[in-house]
Amino acid sequence: MLKKILLGLVVVLVALCAFVATRPSTYSVQRTATFKASPDITFALVNDFHHWGKWSPWDKLDPNQKTTFEGAATGVGAIYGWSGNDDVGEGRMTIEESKANELVRIKLEFIRPWQSTNATSFAFSPAADGVSVTWKMEGHNDFMGKAFSLLMDMDAMLGKDFDNGLAAMRKVAEAETQKRAEAEAAKLAAEKAAAEAVAAQNVAASTP
């Protein structure tokens, strides 16, 4: 009887492994949002890792996490590293391609709690109200990754974080855009007032 039970378990495990092997070897998560914001302001929030703390959905998970900035200040060659609790783990991001107001492509490396390398990109395109941002992540599933996909849908797991991150980015980008518009309006008003004052002085000076 014991032999039959063990044989049955072996058959089940073999069948399970065979099924896991048929799972997709790649995965992709993508979300898009439209901002009423300036494209260059929105682009800068991604192209400069120093701004990620303003909108990243993961930065608030561990307020004590350690972060490092290396390489270029912005754009290609900029490197951002983090190490924190079990919620954030440890990893590194490196900007590999940067096209102003169009694209930022990042190499995303997870070190802990598991090791993997993924391709992440942010695409920016003109929209009627400002700019449309598409955040995409692509990766490969090894055997363990395929097994994990049986229990958790990667799109469902990361998609919510992407939505939250884009919502936070929208808030920051729109606030900065409004701040810039107000500053420009104030500057124009001051220039107009100054011009009117000079014109008034000229009129007064030319009046007998």
Rank of each mutant, 00 (worst) to 15 (best):
E90Q: 14
D142L: 05
T117Y: 09
T134N: 02
G77M: 06
Y80F: 10
E70N: 13
D161I: 05
F49W: 08
I111A: 08
V104A: 00
G77W: 04
K171W: 07
P126M: 01
V172N: 07
S125H: 03
N101Q: 04
V76I: 13
N64M: 14
A175E: 10
T117P: 04
L103E: 01
K60E: 10
M93G: 08
D163E: 07
N64I: 14
D59P: 09
K146N: 01
W52S: 09
F49R: 08
A127R: 08
F122Q: 01
I111R: 11
R112A: 14
F49K: 06
M154F: 03
F143I: 03
K54P: 08
N141V: 09
K54N: 15
T134G: 02
W135T: 06
G84C: 06
F148V: 12
D129M: 13
G91S: 05
A127L: 09
M144N: 09
F148Y: 14
A127G: 12
S132W: 11
A147L: 15
A100K: 08
N101G: 02
S116I: 07
W135P: 03
G53N: 14
S83N: 15
A128V: 15
K66W: 12
N141M: 13
H140G: 08
N164S: 06
S83W: 13
R92I: 05
A147V: 15
K136P: 03
D161Y: 02
R92M: 04
D86T: 06
